[in-house]
């Protein structure tokens, strides 16, 4: 008999993820979309601000595969350029929220007592701030920029993450294996990083895959307020909200950006589910 395969959780997780077809197709579609987004300036058929007012809003054709908008701009090009903004906002803002939220929640939950109380009251206070006014204030003070966009979204999204993580940590903390690691002599930081965080990964991953789409949509709202992307630059969010206005006359202006976003989100969800299963040894089905 041979010693069974696998060395660490990460390697096992990769092996299990590979066996999950849904997750892998999600991953490949995401990779494809990201590559397109990166290469857009070189492969886009038109320039994103090139207008053709004579053409106006035209249905998909050979020249314009996904049609043009009311100003005669090529929609495929605009979706491609939009993906750069949306994906960046989605991933960067989510990672900001993820990092702060997980650390904050894990520390509060693990240390407990007064520290926990103070840390969570700060979260509550921030929750209570009206988001819209907060953004408007930021815009007035600092003007609009992409950096500010990340900051604003990150500042809001980590709160929920911190709460979710804290709740999970409180639950995991009571289990005997945490006491066992105290009795081995591990420091609090070692216990958090080695034993607690890996055991709360499931909800973290699921919530992250939910955060990315909500961040992408949040961006379109912020752009509408004048923070973030300004026309003629585009993002998926702004294309969709533009498309909604002309939905009855020119449905393709809503359908295609919507479809792109939907495909991305589906892929993200499949990948997220796959990751959650892959990181949980108990879901193994060998």
């Amino acid at each position: 008999m041979q010693i069974e395969k696998g060395t660490s959780l990460t390697q096992d997780a990769i092996r299990r993820l590979r066996q999950n077809r849904m997750a892998m197709s999600g991953l490949w579609i995401l990779v494809f979309i990201i590559i397109i987004a990166l290469l857009t300036p070189w492969i886009a058929p038109y320039s994103y601000e090139e207008q053709n007012l004579a053409l106006g809003a035209s249905a998909p054709s050979f020249e314009h595969w996904l049609g043009t908008d009311t100003l005669g701009r090529d929609q495929l090009t605009r979706i491609m350029y939009g993906s750069r903004v949306s994906l960046m906002v989605g991933f960067v803002a989510t990672s900001v929220a993820l990092t702060i939220g997980v650390l904050w929640g894990a520390i509060a939950g693990f240390l407990g007592g007064r520290v926990d109380a103070v840390m969570m009251r700060i979260v509550d206070a921030l929750y209570a701030l009206p988001f819209t006014i907060f953004i408007v204030l930021l815009t007035v003070i600092f003007g609009s920029s992409m950096l500010l966009l990340f900051l604003a979204i990150g500042a809001v999204e980590w709160l929920t993450m911190a709460r979710i993580v804290r709740g999970q940590v409180l639950n995991v903390k009571q289990q005997e294996f945490i006491e066992a690691s105290v009795s081995i002599g591990l420091s609090p930081w070692q216990i958090i990083s080695r034993h607690i965080v890996p055991n709360v990964l499931g909800p973290i991953i699921v919530y992250s895959t939910l955060t990315i789409p909500s961040v992408i949509l949040l961006e379109s709202f912020l752009s509408f307020l004048g923070l973030g992307v300004q026309p003629p630059a585009s993002s998926w969010g702004s294309l969709i909200s533009g498309g909604v206005e002309t939905m009855e006359e020119y449905p393709w202006l809503l359908i295609f950006p919507g479809l792109t976003l939907t495909i991305t989100l589906f892929s993200l969800n499949f990948l997220g589910d796959g990751l959650r299963d892959a990181l949980d040894p108990r879901s193994a089905r060998d």
Binding site: L9, Q175, E176, F177, P281
Partner: peptide, 15 residues
């Protein structure tokens, strides 16, 4: 220490 519940005393994510 050796604990009572062998289901809870081992980290489920560690080999």
């Amino acid at each position: 220490m050796i604990f009572q519940d062998p289901y809870a005393s081992l980290d489920p994510r560690m080999t």
